[in-house]
Design a protein around this nucleic acid. Structure first.
Length: 553
RNA sequence: CGGGGCGUGGCGCAGCCUGGUUAGCGCGCUAGUCUGGGGGACUAGAGGUCCCGAGUUCGAAUCUCGGCGCCCCGACCA
């Protein structure tokens, strides 16, 4: 088909809106792909919607290819369904009432609804099943941000698998995993599938698909040798080995006046900061004060700490610390502390300087197992000078966009919603579920983040709004029309810029919009009965006779 | 929710501190002339609840109070 730019609703802008920071935000707005309606809520203009639909179609094809069946579930959902799974208290849910006062939610995902339907699966003979839909989701985000990266209304593909048992779930999960890799590959998006926290979804295992980008909310940690990738929140990397002072037979007190930080402590005692330990008292939701202990040069990763504790926690107040330790922050330590102690794995071996639980004093030569009895866990935040746990290689930290997330849910939803089936042993069992999500707009935004230059977007051919962009210059209207016809007849979608604008403006718009191939028809090429074909990505241009145009592309 | 910034034609901004003609500039838009392979030139135009409300004042874009919205950092987070 041929779209004439003179008739398109394609409002390109010379300047980006002042409030745009992220590349995807600036370029998609400038290029006339999207417009913001209100915070975190966007309209996809014709060009943007074409890209969105191409992403959608790729996802659809890959889902269909693994036997996942498309359907469409409602947006408006009775709150009652969410009360059954206990997710009705989630802050991010949009709620509303109808005229009779009945409560509804606009779902964040569709586990509840799909499980409601899965109650019609009654026999193991009907399993496994995989269902998906591509629809709008809503989240009352506390802070939408960065263009299409965190929206309050967005399209998601969410798929759900139903199996007899864990083994079946593993297979479904692997099928989806493979499909996800093909989806992002086809979108020319560089992604890393990494182990992740399951967050509010519950369940046992999950894989996050992180696309490195200039803007994003996750931090991706990768090894220079390509054998390690993880989300910072769960990354286990190798800390450097400390320089320990002389080993001591028993802890020895040392007066440390006005020393409040590990850095100051190390300097005062003239030792390696990594040979000190840092006490972080936290109070859990049941009111207990727990001592989290990490190395002096480390930071606590809150997600890891909560996972290790098995319950949420917050930093203890000064009063709680006084009561539990008899000392104040800066002199706290594990020796003599009566409560639960969780120590980072980095403290398993070696002797560290720790707070003495006496203001202004520390203990040298404190050894886990001998001087206090901790439970060990991975608590530390991975640091830039850590090394790869597999090969010792250097690590790279970069911001990334979470474009997809797949979960092994187990019976988290099927149980409360009563989605059961009769197995071949005649026993009634609960369906074992998985759920698999991709954000379409996020994928689009991530592609822009990864593929642009100072002039604009560089779309991969698979999701470009059009296949070819013809720039028609004065005096070459006829050739441009012929070129458009030929390309269209060959099955390509053509954007024909027939607007009465200066050449410079048309070229600038073409660069901004980022269609992979640009064909220029103007007086220069006219003399040769030819057009100029240019690749947006490389800038390489060559003159091609009209007759050879289709073949050359 | 905490911290910071901003709100003036479609976009980018000035004016506000120190209240006072028709609220200005660049880009864009309309008409015309020239021009025509990287955002050209000239001429003439159109387009504004100065975020909203209340107050102070003879007089408010400007000062005061209250509210709303947007952006960034953090908290939060399929």
């Amino acid at each position: 088909m041929i779209a004439r730019a003179s008739q398109l609703f394609l409002p390109t802008l010379r300047d980006a809106p002042a409030d745009a920071e992220a590349a995807n935000h600036k370029l998609l707005v400038r290029g006339g792909f999207i417009r913001q309606v209100t915070g975190g809520v966007w309209t996809f203009l014709p060009l943007g919607w074409r890209v969105h639909r191409k992403v959608e179609q790729i996802i659809r094809e890959e889902m269909d290819a693994i036997g996942c069946q498309e359907m469409l579930m409602s947006v408006l959902t009775p709150l009652e369904l969410w009360q059954k799974t206990g997710r009705d208290f989630i802050q991010e849910i949009f709620r509303l009432k109808d005229r009779k006062g009945t409560d509804y939610v606009l779902p964040l995902t569709h586990e509840e609804t799909v499980s409601f339907h899965a109650r019609e699966l009654q026999s193991y003979r009907q399993l496994p099943q995989m269902l998906y839909h591509i629809a709008t989701k809503h989240r009352d985000e506390p802070r939408p941000r960065a263009g299409l990266i965190r929206m309050r209304e967005f399209w998601m593909k969410d798929a759900y698998s139903f199996d007899r048992d864990e083994e079946g779930l593993d297979k479904s999960f692997e099928l989806q995993h493979g499909a996800y890799e093909r989806i992002f590959e086809r979108c020319s998006l560089n992604v890393f599938g990494v182990q992740a926290e399951s967050g509010m979804m519950g369940g046992t295992e999950s894989i996050d698909f992180l696309a490195p980008a200039g803007a994003g909310e996750n931090t991706l940690v990768t090894c220079e040798n390509g054998d390690f990738a993880a989300d910072l929140e769960v990354a286990r990397t190798m800390p450097r080995i400390p320089v320990f002072p002389e080993t001591m037979m028993a802890p020895g007190e040392v007066e440390t006046p006005n020393v409040k930080t590990c850095e100051a402590l190390a300097e005062f005692l003239a030792i390696d900061v990594a040979a000190t330990s840092k006490a972080m008292p936290v109070t859990t939701d049941d009111g207990a004060v727990v001592l989290a202990l990490i190395r002096g040069d480390d930071h606590v990763e809150p997600a890891k700490l909560d996972a290790a504790l098995g319950r949420p926690s917050r930093p203890s107040t000064d009063e709680e610390i006084r009561d539990a330790f008899g000392a104040s922050g800066g002199s706290l330590g594990p020796v003599g502390f009566a409560g639960e102690i969780v120590a980072d794995d980095a403290l398993r071996a070696g002797q560290f300087v720790a707070g003495a639980n006496r203001d202004g004093w520390h203990l040298r030569g404190v050894e886990a197992g001998r001087d206090f009895q901790p439970r060990f866990a991975d608590l530390r935040e991975s640091a830039p000078d850590d090394t790869c746990p597999h090969c010792g290689g250097k690590l790279r930290f970069e911001t990334a966009i979470e474009v997809g997330h797949i979960f092994k849910l187990g019976t988290r939803y099927s149980e409360p919603l009563g989605a059961r089936f009769l197995d071949d042993d005649g026993k009634e069992k609960t369906l074992v579920m998985g759920s698999y999500g991709v954000g379409l707009a996020r994928t689009m935004a991530a592609v822009v983040e990864q593929s642009h230059d100072e002039l604009g977007i560089v779309w991969p051919a698979s999701i470009a709004p059009y296949d070819v962009h013809i720039v028609q210059l004065l005096g070459a209207e006829e050739v441009a029309a012929q070129a458009a016809e030929k390309l269209s007849a060959a099955g390509m979608d053509v954007l024909l810029d027939d607007r009465d604008l200066r050449p410079g403006e048309k070229f600038a718009d073409a660069d901004l919009i980022g269609i992979p191939i640009r064909v220029t028809a103007g007086k220069k090429s006219l003399e040769d009965g030819a057009v100029d074909v240019r690749a947006r990505g490389t800038g390489a241009e060559r003159r091609v006779p009209l007759a050879d145009l289709v073949a050359s592309i």
